[in-house]
Amino acid sequence: MTLPKNIADRVWLVMLAATLTTWALGSSGATGTWAVLVMLGLACLKGVLVILDFMELRHAPLLWRILLLGWLTLIAALIVLFYWIGST
């Protein structure tokens, strides 16, 4: 199988695979710390791809890349923190 030449097509395929994985994990009743981390990790992967390749911030001024990737990182970190607090 050859990879699509267009980076947007590759990104779309990766995001599709990540979404189906999250859906499959949810349907299989996956729960707990590792499931939360995997699902959030997949969401972050998708988020990074949207920010860098769809919003085209990969070649934008560093400040804007930091702002958007920082938003994603902060939200994901706080979600993990409060899921952890909820599990203890």
């Binding site: 999250t22 969401a43 988020g47 949207v50 769809f54 919003m55 994603l72």
Partner: peptide, 22 residues
């Protein structure tokens, strides 16, 4: 296009958070 991608980005976090993660 940038606005539309933002709408996508927000949902990417919303979906696992509200629908799946527990």
């Amino acid at each position: 296009a940038a606005y539309w991608h933002m709408v996508d980005l927000a949902w990417i976090v919303l979906f696992p958070l509200v629908y799946v993660m527990h």
